[in-house]
Lab assay of single mutants.
Amino acid sequence: NRRVIAMPSVRKWAREKGVDIRLVQGTGKNGRVLKEDIDAFLAG
């Protein structure tokens, strides 16, 4: 159960899209999950 680094707005975006943010690979600094990462995860 790893800790995910993400801005609150990104966490909210993931929740709205029904995405478990822990499954998303972050591409930002220090592995931070970005809004673009959520979109890419949804795109496959």
Score class of each variant (00 low, 15 high):
R22K: 12
G26R: 02
M7E: 15
A40I: 09
D37F: 01
Q25I: 14
K17Y: 06
D20P: 06
Q25H: 14
V4I: 11
V19N: 00
R15A: 12
L23D: 10
E36M: 12
R15I: 14
A40N: 14
R2M: 10
G44S: 15
A6E: 03
G31K: 07
G44P: 09
E36N: 11
I5N: 11
G44N: 15
K35Y: 06
D20G: 02
A6V: 06
G26N: 02
L23K: 13
A43Y: 11
L42F: 08
S9I: 07
R2E: 10
G26F: 02
A43N: 12
L42D: 05
I38M: 02
F41L: 08
L34G: 04
G31W: 04
G28C: 03
W13I: 10
V10N: 02
K29D: 10
R22T: 12
F41P: 02
W13D: 05
V24W: 01
S9K: 11
R3P: 13
Q25W: 13
E36L: 11
L42G: 05
K35A: 06
W13N: 05
A14P: 03
V33F: 01
W13C: 07
R3I: 15
R2N: 14
L42K: 07
N30M: 11
K12A: 12
D20S: 05
E36S: 14
F41K: 04
K29N: 10
I38E: 00
A6P: 03
A6H: 04
A14F: 03
K17C: 13
N30S: 10
A14H: 01
D39F: 07
M7K: 15
R15K: 15
D37N: 06
M7T: 15
D20H: 04
V10A: 06
A40L: 12
F41S: 04
A40S: 12
R22L: 09
N30F: 13
M7W: 15
D39H: 06
L34C: 08
G31C: 07
G26Q: 02
M7L: 15
E36P: 08
D37L: 02
P8D: 08
G18I: 03
D20M: 04
N30P: 01
R11K: 10
L34I: 11
V33A: 02
K29Q: 12
A40M: 12
E16S: 12
A14E: 01
L42A: 10
K17Q: 14
A14K: 01
T27M: 04
A14V: 02
R15D: 09
M7N: 15
A6K: 03
F41T: 04
I5P: 06
V10S: 03
M7G: 15
R22V: 07
A6S: 06
V4K: 06
K29P: 14
L42Q: 08
V24Q: 00
S9Q: 10
R11V: 08
G28S: 03
V24D: 00
L42R: 07
I5E: 08
G26T: 03
E16L: 14
R2D: 13
Q25N: 14
R11L: 09
T27Y: 03
G26M: 01
E16F: 11
R32H: 08
W13A: 08
R3T: 13
V4C: 04
R15F: 12
K17T: 09
D39G: 05
A43F: 11
K12S: 08
K17D: 02
N30K: 12
W13K: 06
D39A: 08
P8R: 15
R11G: 03
R2S: 12
G26C: 02
R11M: 07
G26V: 02
I5C: 05
G18D: 07
V4E: 04
V4Y: 05
M7P: 09
I5D: 08
G28K: 01
R3L: 13
A43Q: 14
D20A: 05
M7F: 15
D37A: 02
L34H: 07
K29E: 12
S9T: 08
S9R: 09
L23F: 11
G28H: 03
K29C: 09
G28Q: 01
T27S: 14
V33Y: 01
N1T: 14
G18W: 05
R15S: 10
K29S: 09
K29L: 12
V4S: 05
I5G: 04
R15P: 03
T27L: 03
K12I: 09
D37G: 00
G26E: 01
F41Q: 05
A40Q: 12
V10M: 03
S9H: 13
G31T: 03
R15M: 12
L23Y: 11
A14M: 02
N30G: 15
A6G: 04
K35R: 12
R15E: 12
A43K: 14
L34V: 08
G18A: 06
A14L: 03
T27D: 01
D39E: 11
K35C: 06
V10W: 02
W13L: 14
V4W: 05
L23H: 11
P8A: 13
V19G: 00
I21V: 05
M7A: 15
E36G: 13
G31H: 07
V33G: 00
V33H: 02
K29T: 11
P8N: 09
G18N: 10
P8V: 08
N30R: 12
L23P: 01
L42V: 14
R15H: 12
L34N: 07
D37W: 03
G26D: 01
K35V: 07
G44K: 15
V24E: 00
L42P: 05
G28R: 02
V19L: 06
E16T: 10
S9E: 12
R11P: 03
G44R: 15
R22G: 08
V33Q: 02
V24N: 00
V10Q: 02
P8E: 09
E16G: 06
L34K: 09
V10H: 01
G18R: 08
R22S: 11
D39P: 02
I38Y: 00
V10E: 05
R3D: 12
R3G: 12
V24Y: 00
A6W: 04
V33P: 01
K35P: 04
A40V: 10
G28D: 03
T27A: 03
V33K: 03
G18M: 08
V4N: 05
R2I: 13
I38Q: 00
A40W: 09
K12H: 08
E16R: 11
G18C: 07
R3F: 11
L34Q: 07
E16P: 01
S9C: 11
R32P: 00
G18E: 07
R32T: 07
F41E: 04
G28V: 02
T27R: 06
N30Y: 13
R11S: 04
D39N: 11
L23T: 08
I21G: 00
D37M: 02
I38N: 00
K12M: 08
L23R: 12
R11N: 04
I38R: 00
V19D: 00
G26L: 01
G44L: 15
K12G: 05
R11F: 11
R11Q: 07
R2T: 13
R2V: 14
V4Q: 06
I21E: 01
R2K: 15
K29V: 13
E36H: 13
V24S: 00
V4M: 05
E16Y: 12
S9L: 08
I21N: 00
L42M: 11
K17H: 15
V24G: 00
G31F: 06
L42W: 07
I21R: 00
E16Q: 13
G26P: 08
P8W: 09
E36F: 08
N30I: 05
F41A: 07
A43T: 12
V10L: 04
N1Q: 13
N30H: 14
A43G: 11
A40E: 10
G26S: 04
L23E: 11
D39S: 08
P8L: 11
V19F: 03
V19A: 04
A14T: 01
A6I: 07
E16A: 13
G31P: 01
D37I: 03
R2P: 11
R11Y: 10
T27W: 03
V4T: 07
K17I: 08
T27E: 02
L34E: 08
I5S: 07
P8F: 07
N30A: 11
G31N: 08
W13Q: 07
R2W: 06
D39V: 10
V24M: 04
R22H: 10
K17M: 14
N1H: 14
R32V: 07
R22Q: 09
G44T: 15
R2F: 09
V33S: 00
K17P: 00
G28E: 02
K17S: 10
A6M: 04
G31E: 05
T27F: 03
E36Y: 10
R11E: 05
S9N: 10
K35H: 08
T27P: 00
V4A: 05
R11H: 09
I21W: 05
I5T: 09
M7V: 13
K35M: 11
K35G: 04
L23M: 14
D20R: 04
V19W: 02
S9M: 09
E16K: 13
R3C: 15
S9W: 12
G28P: 00
D39W: 06
K12T: 07
R32F: 06
A40C: 11
I5A: 06
L23V: 10
R15V: 14
I5F: 10
A43I: 14
K29H: 13
G18V: 03
R32D: 05
G26Y: 02
I38V: 14
K29G: 08
N1L: 09
G26H: 03
D39Q: 09
G28A: 04
V4F: 05
L23W: 09
